[in-house]
Computed example of a mutant assay.
Amino acid sequence: MSVTLDLAKIHPGFLDPVRESQAVFRKVMDAVARPGSVADLAFAVDGPPGLDCAAAAVALTLFDFETPVWLDPALASSEAESWIRFHAGCPLTAETAEADFALVTRAEACPPLAAFNQGDAKYPDRSTTVIIQVAALDGGEPVALTGPGIKTETTIAPRGLPDGFWEQIQTNHAQFQFGVDVLLVAGPKLLALPRSTRAQIRKG
Rank of each mutant, 00 (worst) to 15 (best):
F43V: 00
D125N: 13
D181M: 04
A94G: 09
P12S: 08
P48L: 09
E20T: 12
A56N: 03
Q177M: 06
C53M: 10
A55C: 15
P111E: 05
L71S: 10
P111D: 01
D125T: 13
I84C: 06
R19H: 09
F63L: 15
D40Q: 06
A157S: 15
D138F: 08
T128Y: 01
L103F: 13
N172S: 06
A8F: 12
G204A: 11
K189I: 00
G149N: 09
L184N: 05
T4L: 13
T155V: 15
V130A: 11
V130W: 07
T146K: 12
M1C: 02
E20D: 14
P188Y: 08
A54M: 05
R126W: 11
A33V: 02
A44R: 06
L92R: 04
L193V: 11
W83G: 07
L103P: 02
P148K: 11
R202Y: 05
A107L: 04
G140I: 01
E141A: 12
F43H: 14
Q170E: 14
A102P: 09
V38I: 15
A39L: 06
P73K: 02
V18T: 13
V180Q: 02
A94E: 15
D64R: 02
G139E: 07
P124T: 02
E20W: 02
R26D: 12
L7V: 07
T96A: 14
A31D: 09
K203L: 11
T197P: 06
V3P: 00
W166N: 06
D64Y: 02
T67Q: 11
K203F: 07
P194R: 04
